[in-house]
Write a protein that binds this DNA or RNA. Structure first.
Lengths: 152, 152
DNA sequence: TTGATCCTGCAACACAGTTGCAAAACTATT
DNA sequence: AATAGTTTTGCAACTGTGTTGCAGGATCAA
């Protein structure tokens, strides 16, 4: 049901003391409908209404500060934003593992957050102090596999 | 000895059928003196002579195609270029593991290639086809550790 | 020396991202 | 409902990164 999702978006924002304005509902609504990370340009293209570029940037900044989304830098340097749930991480907004793997599909180019993958321990040179190990991966996503039936 | 290094730079370029022009020798010379990845702006700042921005971009493009350097995208989205040896990978130009870990020092911001670290096998959801697993890390580099004597 | 090829610098452009400011929208209070 | 105060938005302008086309210069091979 469309109405109930709108309500949920509204509630999510209110809970975080974010005024549920049009842009914010539109952008968060888009994130809720999509399982992968979105660039600023993607968002501009896919939301219903036209908003100023700056307004969208500020919306994303605000969502990031509130922990609704996080930045993902593509292997080509493109900045994308991934929502913390509804799809990517199979959990609700604001629940996700902080350090998780980002998977980029080489067919569709989409980036998925994969919180289920464990970050392994690795051997590391002793003269460097390792703090965080970050994983990213390339391959073919679920959707493209079922569509194209690629087996390589 | 400075002269002998200049000769080596010259030879490296000639071997690859790259005309050893001023920019090219300057830029490759810089890479040979440095152990970490450099951004376009870094290079512009640190080479002796002033060259046009575009010329430097084209030089980097050429070096990349010839396999002398490779692009590294910083976690903040900044594009850097790492030479395939002389420092970063402990091997000579053009010899390096294609898929290696990039280490970013949180103190100095420099990025190091660490070819000695093995890429582990991981458990991955069966409905996604994993092709390449990429590792990147954050921590404190050798130099900053010895300088600051940080122990966390 | 001549032509062909390669390299460089310049102008111009596209795109991402940021900042300051003023108008508009909203909130709370009376 | 009118007011004052705070937030939010849109606009203009600007910075930084990266790209393209073109013309002049340097280099190479004959």
């Amino acid at each position: 049901m469309k109405g109930s999702n709108d309500k949920r978006i509204d509630g999510t924002l209110r809970d975080l003391k974010i005024r549920p304005t049009k842009v914010r509902k539109d952008v968060l609504g888009l994130f809720s409908r999509v399982e992968f990370a979105l660039s600023h340009a993607d968002i501009e293209r896919h939301i219903k209404q036209k908003f100023d570029r700056v307004t969208i940037y500020r919306t994303l900044e605000m969502f990031e500060k509130s922990g609704l989304i996080h930045k993902v830098i593509d292997d080509t340097g493109v900045t994308k934003y991934a929502s913390h749930g509804y799809g990517g991480c199979d959990v609700h907004f604001r629940h996700h593992k902080t350090n998780h793997l980002h998977f980029k599909c080489t067919e569709c180019g989409n980036i998925y957050c994969m919180c289920s993958v464990e970050v392994p321990k690795i051997d590391f040179p002793i003269d460097f102090e390792l703090k965080i190990l970050k994983l990213s991966a390339e391959g073919i996503c679920k959707k493209c596999l079922s569509k194209g039936n690629k087996t390589t």
